[in-house]
């Protein structure tokens, strides 16, 4: 499809003899909020890294924003925001300095949005990164990924280390971003309630294979089970 932001075709990735991704194929359409659900070790992070060109699959093809992820053009990078599972920021910098440093790489930067988020999430721009808790560091990572208003946002379990309040705020921010301008969001999680709140498409990953990929509503129509029960049922 022309409007696919991410196109994964027959992707297989092995680490040694272990097959982490096994012949995966799916597409993520423009403007959709795509949730990737899977247990620990199911291959979520490897799939995200492959989509972003951080690792290279042995077989298959991936196209992200119409570009080959392994050798992204600079213009494509301008359109991507990424929050890894555990980000390593520079502990000696202050939040403000970290924001300025990151902003210097992008041709476009929404300082108002960043400042708003810093304030809303109760962060002090003068605090050093090294003194922040894990959850606060994650908030900074999320803010940094939003500053250049990317077309594609990729989150690898972004809310795992956030408290319930920050998690709610994060999801609220995502909904605001989606409603404000066209943006595709791809995020992995094992928290099914988050998926139900914001995603329209979902993929269930189990032992490197896609067990389901489609609209969330379609999945929900399967019996009288809720998403968590369906997930547990399918990955048993």
């Amino acid at each position: 499809m022309k409007n696919d932001i991410i196109d994964v075709k027959n992707v297989t990735k092995c680490f040694g003899s272990k097959k982490v991704l096994d012949d995966l194929s799916f597409q993520v359409g423009q403007g959709s909020v795509f949730g990737l659900l899977g247990k620990n070790g199911s291959g979520k992070t490897t799939l995200i890294k492959s989509i972003l060109g951080l690792v290279r699959p042995q077989h298959g093809n991936i196209t992200t924003l119409g570009d080959d992820p392994w050798c992204f053009q600079e213009s494509t990078k301008e359109k991507i925001g990424y929050v890894p599972q555990m980000d390593s920021l520079y502990p000696w910098l202050r939040i403000k300095e970290m924001v300025e440093y990151t902003a210097s790489f992008y041709s476009r930067w929404n300082s108002n949005l960043v400042n708003e988020l810093i304030e809303d999430w109760g962060l002090n721009p003068q605090d050093r990164i090294g003194t922040l808790s894990v959850g606060e560091s994650q908030k900074v990572s999320i803010i940094l990924s939003l500053g250049h208003e990317p077309e594609l946002l990729v989150f690898d379990e972004p809310v795992a280390s956030l408290d319930p309040f920050a998690r709610r705020q994060f999801l609220k921010t995502l909904i605001e971003i989606i409603t404000r301008r066209p943006c595709t969001i791809f995020f992995s999680t094992h928290i099914t309630s988050d998926l139900e709140r914001i995603t329209d498409h979902v993929a269930l990953l189990h032992q490197g294979k896609i067990m389901f990929c489609g609209e969330l509503d379609e999945l929900k129509t399967r019996g009288n089970l809720n998403l968590e029960e369906i997930f547990l049922e399918m990955t048993r």
């Binding site: 951080l54 600079e74 213009s75 890894p84």
Partner: peptide, 14 residues
């Protein structure tokens, strides 16, 4: 060693 070297524009060259 960080993913930002692959994902931030002009990161490596700068």
């Amino acid at each position: 060693a960080h993913p930002r070297s692959s994902l931030l524009p002009h990161y490596r060259s700068s």
